[in-house]
């Protein structure tokens, strides 16, 4: 099977001579269709840089990123915008929804930007809202919704265009535990029932435990890869925690 996302030898260096910071130092991994992959790592491990490169917000220094067969580093201007709206769906930590639009309109926005047939927009947006269980807030404005509802509306917007890859950047960062559980449950359902491919960046072990596979980054390199396989979420969660403590605590150096 062809991978949806193929990252090869990805390097990103910030700054110039003398003061250069290597955010990513040769990263290799693949994500296949229908996968729910988590990226974890402590602050400064390169999570955000990786996501920015994949979402075409930032340009890598070296290496290649292939999404659904197209090479990102070669894209510019209009092709870049087109790529973003056709191949990618985004869920961010905050500033996710436009405060001037209702829930329905926020979902519809992704479609209208992509030039969808106007008559079909509302139907498709409602369908996406149904999938994420946010039908009751469609006529509300973001400030009238809870944080969890906002994120689920954002998730609906991310998947409504049927993107090749949904990128979620700390989507639960600003949520309480109940909303977190609800959002992740919906993403999981989206992954299992609709076959959506999701790449989720987080530093929270509980959030990561919903994924099927987790990539751990440290200092811009792939540190460890963890597969859930047939484990239940609790066992997977404990395993994640042990890797996290290894990663963050650096116990080997201390003891």
């Amino acid at each position: 099977m062809e991978p949806i996302l193929n990252v090869h030898g990805l390097q990103k260096t910030y700054g110039g001579r003398g003061t250069c910071t290597k955010a990513l130092q040769g990263l290799d991994f693949r994500v296949f269709p229908g996968e729910f992959v988590g990226v974890m790592g402590p602050s400064g491990s390169g999570k955000t840089t990786l996501l920015n490169c994949i979402s075409t917000i930032d340009h890598p220094t070296a290496g290649s990123i292939l999404v659904d067969g197209s090479e990102l580093t070669a894209l510019k201007g209009k092709a870049l915008s087109q790529f973003r709206r056709e191949k990618l769906g985004f869920i961010f930590q905050d500033c996710n929804l436009l405060d001037t639009l209702t829930g329905l309109e926020n979902i519809a926005l992704a479609l209208t930007i992509g030039g969808a047939e106007p008559r079909s927009v509302e139907r498709r947006a409602r369908e996406a809202a149904r999938l994420l269980g946010v039908e009751e807030v469609l006529d509300k404005f973001p400030y009238q919704m809870s944080g969890g509802q906002q994120q689920r509306v954002a998730a609906a917007r991310a998947m409504v265009t049927g993107p090749a890859l949904i990128l979620a950047d700390e989507p639960t960062g600003a949520l309480d535990s109940k909303s977190t559980g609800m959002l992740l449950g919906q993403l999981d359902k989206l992954n299992r029932e609709e076959g959506a491919t999701i790449l989720l960046v987080t530093h929270d072990a509980f959030t990561a435990s919903w994924c099927r596979r987790i990539l751990f980054l440290r200092d811009g390199e792939l540190y460890r890869e963890l597969h859930r396989r047939s484990m239940d979420r609790k066992a997977f969660f404990r395993e994640i925690l042990s890797v996290v403590s290894e990663l963050g605590g650096d116990s080997g150096d201390v003891l």
């Binding site: 209009k78 087109q82 790529f83 930007i113």
Partner: peptide, 9 residues
């Protein structure tokens, strides 16, 4: 946000 959602310049 519009730019991130793929609205061209």
């Amino acid at each position: 946000l519009l730019s991130r959602l793929g609205a061209s310049e």
